[in-house]
Design a protein around this nucleic acid. Structure first.
Length: 401
RNA sequence: GGUGAGUUACUCAAGCGGCCAAAGAGGGCAGACUGUAAAUCUGCUGGUUUUUACCUUCGAAGGUUCGAAUCCUUCACUCACCA
């Protein structure tokens, strides 16, 4: 069916750390021999249903486990989301109502099943069993742990020492996440490196509650965003969303630098490590242009979230704009009353935020009309149709009446 | 609750009566160079067709002054130390 060593290598790929490798191997072996499936758990915050490639690193790893006998327990942390994971932030969260949780869950599913096999996935809400826990159950849960150990967690420790407030409820977060593992009897839990403490809590609690096994823990790195420095996140606007259209995905992937490209290959591509090594070597000796390697990566990712056809079109489109200086096909159109001052037209066509800025860009030679650079900032557009361009990427089709 | 410090543009941060649309850094945008990138160099980065000008901005509201981001008063918020 599959080779154990090969499978394990694939699983190890990109991981920062695996705790209890032996157990992972055992699970794979027993699936190989007896067809016994096992549970792989991962939790997601219900507040942000817009997935980006940073999230898919983890989800792809889940999909890999499905290939090797894993049943994925996809947990929507609707209860824990109310507390807010204290990791690295101190904003207070708003409580989500049932309706928006369900809506978020729905869009989660749509996005996640582009990668995961729905037949081998259980989508679960952790409020279900945590609500049942009740006050006494909650109290019992807290007796399994003490404050000193809680403060072992790095960011609690930092905040405690620097006298930044820690809410009592935040202590509950790791406990409840761990309790999920108790109820679900998970065999493996995946998470980001920032989740280490919470993931280990699952092991501790499974022991305390005599589940009869302790989950293995597999930690994935946080994917760097387009800038190559910060982790990919929506707030930094350095992300590629899985629902983005093919053209913008292509452009964004091509804009990353070469070293980041290999990082993306490792964490996002389904090519084998050997194939990637060959690719890398070919680029190194100059046999393959790095741009081509990057295009291949972009194609693969777009195929995953759209299809092959769209990937091809996106590639052509991109090369049209950049290489051959042709125009993109889907330029937004505007109708304006003429004659109109060029700076005003640029603002009206949403290419510039203000006429002052438009003037500055004209002075710098960033503005083109029908592909011809202009320098006269007093220019009046007479009636007719024009293609206005600012910089390399911003276009508009303008009809002056 | 007490005491002290602070609140300046996208962010950090200088300015402490006129030369302030406000230094510097980061970020962003653009130009050159490239591979479409990165790195590098350069320019721009409140608004307005009065563009060596005018208008609105320095937590909020008042006040002093010929003139206030700068001084005074009140209010709001943030932080630190003490309780």
């Amino acid at each position: 069916m599959f080779d154990l060593d090969e499978a394990f290598k694939e699983i190890q790929r990109g991981c920062v750390e695996i705790i209890d490798e032996k157990r992972v191997k055992e699970l794979l072996t027993s699936y190989l021999k007896n067809g016994e499936t096992f549970y792989v758990k991962a939790g997601f915050d219900p507040t942000a249903p817009d997935l980006h490639l940073g999230h898919t690193v983890l989800i792809q790893k889940l999909a890999l486990f499905q290939k090797y006998g894993g049943i994925v327990q996809f947990i929507i942390g609707d209860f824990t989301g109310m507390i807010g994971d204290p990791t690295g932030k101190n904003e207070t969260r708003k409580k989500l109502d049932k309706k928006s949780v369900l809506e978020n869950a729905k869009s989660y599913k749509e996005q996640v099943f582009m990668i995961l096999d729905p037949k081998k996935t259980e989508v679960l809400f952790n409020s279900k069993w945590i609500d049942e826990l009740g006050a006494s159950g909650m109290l019992e849960l807290t007796t399994t742990f003490n404050v000193a150990r809680m403060l072992e967690r790095e960011d609690f420790d930092k905040r405690y020492k620097s006298q930044t407030p820690i809410s009592i409820s935040e202590f509950l977060y790791p406990l409840l996440q761990g309790y999920d593992s108790v109820v679900l009897k998970s065999d493996i839990e995946l998470g980001g490196t920032d989740q280490k403490f919470n993931l280990l809590m699952g092991r501790t609690l499974q022991r305390s509650y005599n589940v009869g096994k302790e989950q293995a823990v597999l930690m994935m790195p946080l994917l760097e965003g387009l800038d190559g420095i910060n982790k990919m996140s929506k707030s930094l606007n350095n992300y590629i969303g899985v629902t983005e259209d093919a053209n913008s995905m292509f452009g964004k992937i091509l804009s990353i630098n070469d070293s980041l490209m290999w990082r993306y290959y490792e964490l996002l591509s389904t090519k084998t490590l050997d194939d990637i090594r060959v690719l890398k070597e070919n680029v190194r000796v100059g046999f393959l242009h790095p741009k081509v390697a990057k295009e291949q990566l972009a194609m693969e990712i777009i195929e995953r979230f759209h299809n092959e056809e769209k990937a091809k079109i996106a590639k052509e489109e991109f090369n049209n704009i950049h290489k051959q200086n042709l125009l993109p096909t889907d330029i937004e159109s505007f109708e304006l009353d003429g004659p109109i001052w060029i700076a005003k037209a640029l603002v009206d066509a949403k290419l510039e935020p203000s006429t002052s800025n438009a003037r500055r860009d004209i002075k710098q030679g960033a503005v083109k009309i029908d592909q011809v650079k202009i320098s006269d900032e007093q220019l009046q557009l007479q009636s007719g149709t024009y293609i206005l361009q600012v910089g390399k990427r911003k276009f508009a089709n303008v009809k002056v009446k």
